[in-house]
């Protein structure tokens, strides 16, 4: 309940300040427009479109998800949070906020891909939907813990993608593979190994996040 209250506070604050939503929306529009302009009338392969989807998702996550902690640090309200809740509550609240943001962002990106790219065809949604859900959770968990780390640094903007890339790479590679399977129409039972990798990644990052957050959160 405490974490949910923090999530509600963050969501209400986001609706009033538009700290992350505007940045994310603009980034998504600009990136997809640039891709469309650069493709022109060319026919691109289905696999390439699937790859581009996750490229856009990765960089959009880099532009908006650090806000959960960076906004608190920039406004000077980190101390206030430290005074009202224990670290695990803060992490849970911020994680909930990022999970919601990731789902909204990635659903919007995927819908735009379906509408704007003729070559983006998912033949087996039974594989795509669970991989999309597990992938979003993985991105949200990793981004939240990395955001907490970089919020204390002076060059936040540069550090975030640099630190995120090696951590998110196994997740993105697995998601690329699963998207390829979904495009090929491979059924769910033939994608179980990759889905288990995704699930394990999410669990490892979640456990590591809760274990590390205590140390990151204190000066």
């Amino acid at each position: 309940m405490k974490a949910f209250a923090l999530f509600k506070k963050d969501w209400q604050s986001e609706l009033r300040t538009r700290y992350a939503i505007n940045a994310l929306a603009m980034f998504i529009l600009v990136t997809i427009s640039v891709i469309l302009f650069s493709i022109g009338q060319e026919n691109i392969s289905e696999y390439l479109t699937g790859g581009l989807l996750w490229v856009v998702i990765f960089f959009s996550a880099m532009s908006g998800l650090s806000r959960a902690f960076v906004s608190e640090e920039e406004r000077g309200t980190t101390l206030t949070l430290q005074l009202i809740a224990k670290p695990s509550t803060i992490f849970s609240g911020k994680l909930l906020f990022n999970v919601l943001l990731v789902f909204i962002m990635n659903t919007a990106i995927t819908i735009l891909f379906f509408l704007l790219f003729e070559s983006f065809i998912i033949r087996d949604s039974g594989t795509f939907i669970p991989s999309f859900i597990l992938g979003n959770i993985g991105i949200a968990v990793s981004s939240t813990i990395i955001a907490a780390i970089i919020s204390k640094a002076s060059s936040k903007g540069t550090l975030y993608p640099v630190l995120s890339f090696p951590i998110l790479l196994p997740l993105i590679l697995t998601l690329l593979e699963l998207t390829k399977f979904s495009i090929d129409g491979q059924p769910l039972d033939e994608s179980l190994i990759e889905l288990t990798v995704l699930f394990s990644y999410d669990m490892i990052m979640l456990t590591a996040g809760y274990m590390l957050f205590d140390f990151i959160w204190k000066d």
Partner: peptide
Amino acid sequence: FVSPYLVLYDEF
């Protein structure tokens, strides 16, 4: 705790 470096939420 009260301190000069404590900041509350301006948007609320």
